[in-house]
Design a protein around this nucleic acid. Structure first.
Lengths: 195, 195
DNA sequence: ACATAAAAACTAGCGTTGCTAGAGTCGATC
DNA sequence: GATCGACTCTAGCAACGCTAGTTTTTATGT
């Protein structure tokens, strides 16, 4: 059975190679450049090999997206573990999120814009997605007050996600980035009236 | 010269027909179904006719997006004119925005997700876009406090836009929609701490 | 009324896309 | 060393956005 084990290992390796090449190509030239022909050339196999690993091209994008969720979640977790008191923690979390989106635009696009139908907010939500939301909830929980922390987490997530996409599409004034983060943190923490 | 005038009128009519059919098809079957062949069949002309009206397919999507901005702006303007005091006005504005996104998913996709490069937040921003942002700014201005109203407007826009897209992609708990709007309005108005 | 020139719309086709059927090759096992 | 199964490749399909070149239509001048 050791032969089959080696084969499985090699398949696994090639699986990761496909995702790595797809991701790299998407980051450098955009997702439109990620065609099955170019991708198969990059991995040095013929096109049909791709289809022995993934059902179709969308499944490749979805796999890259899932990687992205795991990485973003890990970045948020790390940020939360090193930052001190609560308000600073929220600022760091927001900046971490926005930095990730800016540093990995293609991955972020796969996660949200290329709207691959990943199951969210329901029974069969993949663990990385659930964990990512839990990170956001943890960092805003101190400010939920009368509301549920999950609801505040959803609204905060929406705001940060909105900033990420609108910034990416150059629809906000670039020089005001810092102020926007400040306003966002102020309002989420309930310091809106400037007390 | 009256002949040319008639021709220009007919061209204008066909121009609108193309946009109307493209929009309708996108809303019923999604933008992937809007191919140049299907669209040309719908307007009962051959494909090249499309290219005498628009540079390419993306230009058609962009034109639909611009229509959408004008309509959304008008909806916000109307909402603001009928709603009473400021806090209620913000709630109505948010609901109007989210209703528009939900009622016209394909148009909203053209406006934001199909990231057609429309010039934003700079010199040559088209009027409908500028006017739309002005509507948002007007409704949040009373709560800017120490900050600039434009900055609060950007953050608020991001939050509402985030809610619109995350809701569309089923990434938020559907039954909590109302609570999210309430939390959002609370925080934007600076009532976060529950005063 | 008819010929002519210009304007408009069509047919046909190019290169590229995602995906797949069927042929071919390689390697482990008896 | 032959055989059979697993794996990979070549070749090609239908559909895509877009365009060159031809045909048809339409307004004008005699």
């Amino acid at each position: 059975m050791t032969v089959n084990e080696r084969r499985a290992r090699e398949r696994e390796q090639r699986h990761r190679l496909i995702l790595a090449k797809a991701r790299a190509l998407a980051e450098t030239e955009g997702w439109d450049a990620v065609t099955t022909r170019r991708l198969s050339a990059l991995i040095e196999y013929s096109q049909p090999v791709l289809y022995s690993h993934f059902r179709n091209k969308d499944a490749i994008v979805a796999a890259v997206a899932l990687e992205g969720f795991a990485e973003l979640t890990e970045a948020l977790r790390r940020a939360r573990s090193v930052s001190g008191h609560a308000r600073g923690a929220l600022t760091v979390a927001v900046e971490t999120y926005l930095d990730f989106a800016e540093a990995n635009p293609a991955v972020y696009e796969a996660m949200f814009t290329r709207t691959v139908p990943l199951p969210f907010a329901q029974e069969d939500t993949p663990e990385p997605l659930r964990a990512g939301f839990a990170e956001i909830e943890a960092v805003v929980a101190p400010y939920a007050y009368a509301h549920h922390s999950a609801t505040l987490a959803e609204v905060t997530w929406a705001a940060v996600h909105g900033l990420a996409t609108l910034t990416r599409d150059h629809r906000l004034r670039p020089e005001e980035h810092r102020q926007r983060v400040e306003v966002l943190v102020d309002r989420v923490t309930g310091r809106g009236a400037g007390r």
